[in-house]
Design a protein around this nucleic acid. Sequence first.
DNA 1: AATTAGCACTCTCGGTCGTCGAGTGCTAAA
DNA 2: TTTAGCACTCGACGACCGAGAGTGCTAATT
Lengths: 362, 362
Amino acid sequence: MYLSERKKSILRTVVELYVKTAEPIGSKAVVEALGSTLSSATVRSDMSELENLGLLEKPHTSAGRIPSSLGYRLYVNELMLSRNISNDDAIVINSTLDGSLAVRPHLLDEVGSLTSRLTTYPAYAMTSSTGIISIARFDFIYVDSYTFIIVALLSNDTVKNKLVHLTAPFDPKILQKLTAIFNASFTGIPEERVTPTLIMATERAVGDTSGIVTIVAGFVIELLVEAKAIGASFTGAVNLLDHPEYRDIDKAQRIIRYLSDVNELVRLPSPDIAGEVKITIGPENLAEQLKDSSVVAVRYDAGGDMQGLIGVVGPTRMDYSKVATHLSYIAKGLSLLLSGTNPLVSGAAKTSKIGDEDIGEN
Amino acid sequence: MYLSERKKSILRTVVELYVKTAEPIGSKAVVEALGSTLSSATVRSDMSELENLGLLEKPHTSAGRIPSSLGYRLYVNELMLSRNISNDDAIVINSTLDGSLAVRPHLLDEVGSLTSRLTTYPAYAMTSSTGIISIARFDFIYVDSYTFIIVALLSNDTVKNKLVHLTAPFDPKILQKLTAIFNASFTGIPEERVTPTLIMATERAVGDTSGIVTIVAGFVIELLVEAKAIGASFTGAVNLLDHPEYRDIDKAQRIIRYLSDVNELVRLPSPDIAGEVKITIGPENLAEQLKDSSVVAVRYDAGGDMQGLIGVVGPTRMDYSKVATHLSYIAKGLSLLLSGTNPLVSGAAKTSKIGDEDIGEN
DNA sequence: AATTAGCACTCTCGGTCGTCGAGTGCTAAA
DNA sequence: TTTAGCACTCGACGACCGAGAGTGCTAATT
């Protein structure tokens, strides 16, 4: 679609003013914002053409115009200026990420809440494993004659343990047998291969009648299932209420309910490669509930074969540039933190759809 | 405050109708609900007296009446009928709790979301330790010449571990030294006593110059701090929007924001003993933000010296009986699950402020 | 051909006004 | 003590109206 430079800057202005004010933008306001000497009538006819092209629309006859989804799309693809993250925000992000390292179990929550605070939109964060996880090594620690600890080192370099309390005393020597046989038969295999047959064979080999083998095998299955499981977190839902498009309580509720369902979260749009920012605008969303909202998501490298995803959901009237910048910065920080690599620097990835002029901050 | 039986049942009726409809209740509606042959004029004069006593109030001259906080308080203390939990709800609770045992790290979230779903109000769940936690025992597992695992058994019967990757190879023999000295010097002591002096002394004793001792000691501190930390979860905030008293978005937002702050959560009203349900109505709340909301909370025994708290926040127009029943049932289930004891059966505790007539379900 | 001034037209927003109805309080009678 | 009757109050709701913002069109200008 060919657009004259003037039409482009009018479209850009309408988008940016509308993002800021949430009010339909009239021709006069555009002239003013452009600092142009054009008359409002001229701009008016241009805007009318932009409307015919489906880039702008009117809420009603006598109001100004607002961008259509197509208008936003064109803006995001071609008109949007990338910006640098503000120093303050960078500091907040860095210190939050540094501090979160200690609380790994709630890392996703932390990241989500950080993202949500910075962008003022609800945020979601997820991790999932891309590879197949197995156990690399077993150890058993004797505590007392009723108690021992199982320690398992997983193939993704995490360690899990379980304290086992038996109701009857056991012979400490059995722990050596367990160590030998579990390291021989249960390492390097995925969850599907921990079969009842294998467990029973192990029981016979160890000569165990007390059920210890079953307990340990149960722990193994639990671990492998858990390792496969994705982690997901959805934070900052209240923030939605800040934005006038969700003033309608029912609408806000519908969308929050939708996003609170982990099963739906995993279906949200997701960029293909780490570091890339994916912007999905209004009806481009597959989910019915998101047809008039937008999603901005970024992928990060969570170390090992773990991949992570952070995203933000808000009205189509969103400051895409700012949100993309924030997400991208956070993802970069997380990748660095968790995997020691920076996808944006190291590879072909780039923040898609974002120009590279620099208009500074704010 | 003496009240005739008739006035009591009028008050009860007003509360119950108002809880159901959220509309001010007129004298005629009361007569109807009571199935009484009294005339509305009689009820009217009774209601007028109840208003003089501060138990009812009028939103405006020509509307019906609604209970005042005092009215709710009297209702909760003396008029409310306890009820049994419905079979369906019991099944939901039991199966959710059983299923949650596996996902301990998110137990609080699960419990909160369960509570929130059943009551239709936002729920919070917390645990904290009442005792002082120390490490009972250390083990070190050799993985390879750069890598070892620290395993620590805490005094509350949980096990923690950490995988340590060094940049330079280490002598496996040092692990034995570490085992000996950490078990001798770092067990049974609280976090405050893990001082730099102790760490340096340990370093000298082991003859460590590579910083391994510092790493292990850092892990110890991290563990003890984390063990002291409370866990808190706030779930189901959207549910607030279901209730007409939070139709005002700003009001809803204020209260959700308030409850999203963990530091505030810990100050919410809390019953003194496990199993007891504590109901705090409107202005009885200390927090300014909760002056026109109510809180219902219950304490449970989380095993070891862990105590847990579940609570629900909603409008003063709340079905206290139903909420109390649900909370109490969930707390009972959790206590049983986590500590094997049932406080309601085993001790002096009772669900305070709840009568014992039985009006069945719903 | 592009731009502009001028103008009639459209539609929303906010305020005012009047009606309706639910519910009350009071009085006087039962 | 209870009740019927009645005047009164007040919010909810809808109709109406004027102001203001913005548009599209036309005719004149560059």
